[in-house]
Amino acid sequence: MANNVPSNTDDFDEPAAAPGIGRRSFMLGVPGALLAGASLASPSAGAATADASASDVHDDPVKIPSRPWKVAFEEHYMTSHFDSIVRKDTKVAARTGVYADLLDVDTKRIELMDRAGIQYAILSLNTPGIQGETDPAAAVSDARYANDELRRIVDRHPGRLGAFAALPMQDPAAAADELDRAVRELGFHAPLVNSFSNLHTENGVVYLDEPQYLPFWERVQALGVPLYLHPRNPVPSQQLMFRDHPELLAATWAYLVETSTHALRLITSGLFDRYPDLQICLGHLGESLPFMAWRVSAVYARHAHRVKLKHDLLTYLKTNFRYTTAGFFDTTATVEVMNFVGRDRVYFSTDYPWMDMVQGGQWLDNAELSDADRWRIGRMNAVELFKLKLAPTA
Rank of each mutant, 00 (worst) to 15 (best):
M1C: 06
N4W: 06
S7K: 11
A18D: 11
I21E: 12
L34F: 15
A36N: 08
A36E: 10
A38P: 01
A41R: 12
S42I: 13
A48M: 15
D56A: 15
D56W: 03
V57W: 06
K70H: 08
E74R: 04
H76D: 12
M78D: 10
T79R: 11
D83T: 13
S84R: 14
V92I: 11
D104M: 04
D106K: 09
K108R: 14
R109K: 09
E111D: 09
E111A: 06
D114W: 01
R115N: 11
A116K: 03
L123W: 10
P128A: 14
G132T: 03
G132R: 01
P136C: 00
P136L: 01
A139F: 02
V140R: 06
S141Y: 02
Y145H: 05
A146D: 03
D148G: 00
P158N: 02
A165F: 10
L167T: 00
A173C: 00
A174Y: 01
A174M: 00
A175P: 02
D180L: 10
D180T: 10
F196L: 14
H200E: 14
T201R: 12
E202D: 12
N203R: 10
D209G: 10
E210D: 13
P211Y: 11
R219F: 01
G224A: 09
V225L: 09
V225T: 09
R232W: 01
N233P: 02
D244E: 14
A250Q: 04
A251H: 11
E258M: 00
H262G: 03
L266H: 05
T268W: 01
L278W: 08
L282N: 00
L282R: 02
L285E: 05
G286I: 03
E287W: 00
L289Y: 01
A298C: 09
V299C: 07
H303V: 08
L309A: 06
K310H: 15
L313I: 13
L314I: 12
L317E: 02
T325D: 01
A326L: 02
D330F: 04
T332R: 09
T332A: 15
T334E: 07
N339L: 13
V346D: 05
V346N: 03
Y347V: 02
F348C: 05
T350N: 08
D351G: 02
L364T: 05
E368K: 09
D371Q: 12
I377L: 04
G378D: 05
R379D: 08
A391H: 13
T393V: 15
A394N: 12
